[in-house]
């Protein structure tokens, strides 16, 4: 038990004394997850929108598949991505293994279903009077699409924050694809795994607290934006 208190204490020591290894893991985590989220949003938002806004054959089945992918274990995604980008895999020449770019690819796969599914639910939960109102006010179909997206901005923000949470907290992809290489692909979660494996439980707790602080900052920023809007 005492390693919990010790963990709390060392979390703040690490942060305030500027422990280089810890900060490197933090920056790697932020860099990788932020890019993964950015790309996931660019791809996932329009798809999520299309999935709820338009009617087409097989829509329900696609939705079921997307919702199922929400439960995809991170290790499986790690394995899948590894199978493709290992030197003997079909994408081996891209040199993505043991690179942050490889982790980004894996996290995109992990997080896109979250973005698509939550965006789709967000748009589905919009008021049905919205579309009539926009038509009545003379909006063109394209304008209706953009305005609908804007009306669902809070749902989209929640989707982004949830997806970010999944990205920064995953360990399967970072470990399998990144390889937990010090100064390069070591993220907060792979560092936690390593420290725990070494028996440095307090250090593991400390890094966990750092991760929580980042999540808290993201959610706090979200609340701030909502208040302003």
């Amino acid at each position: 038990m005492e390693f919990l208190a010790e963990g709390f204490f060392s979390a703040f020591t690490l942060l305030f004394q500027g422990h280089a290894e810890t900060y490197d893991a933090i920056f790697t985590t932020l860099e990788v997850s932020s890019f993964a989220i950015l790309i996931s949003l660019i791809i996932g938002l329009p798809l999520g929108f299309a999935l709820s806004y338009y009617n087409f054959p097989g829509k329900r089945h696609i939705r079921a598949v997307v919702d199922t992918l929400l439960a995809l274990p991170t290790v499986i995604v790690g394995l899948l991505v590894y199978a493709f980008i290992t030197k003997k895999g079909p994408l081996g020449d891209l040199n993505l293994l043991f690179q942050t770019s490889g982790i980004i690819v894996g996290q995109i796969i992990l997080v896109i279903p979250v973005v698509i599914s939550l965006t789709a639910s967000g748009i589905e939960s919009l008021d049905e009077r919205l579309k009539s109102t926009l038509i009545t006010l003379g909006a063109s179909p394209r304008r209706i699409l953009l305005s609908t997206l804007y009306e669902s901005r809070f749902a989209v923000m929640t989707a982004a924050a949830t997806a970010y949470g999944r990205a920064i907290s995953e360990v399967g992809v970072s470990m399998m694809v990144g390889g937990n290489i010090k100064w390069h692909t070591r993220t907060i979660t792979t560092a936690i795994t390593l420290e725990t494996g070494k028996g440095e439980f307090a250090m593991g707790i400390a890094l966990g607290i750092v991760l929580l602080l980042i999540s808290f900052a993201v959610n706090w920023a979200l609340i701030f934006f909502r208040k302003r809007a």
Binding site: F98, G179, I181
Partner: peptide, 19 residues
Amino acid sequence: LRWTGVGTGKAIQMGVNCD
């Protein structure tokens, strides 16, 4: 030198896969 610390089985598989 960059290294990834894994079980011996996986390390050897990484050699087989040219990683």
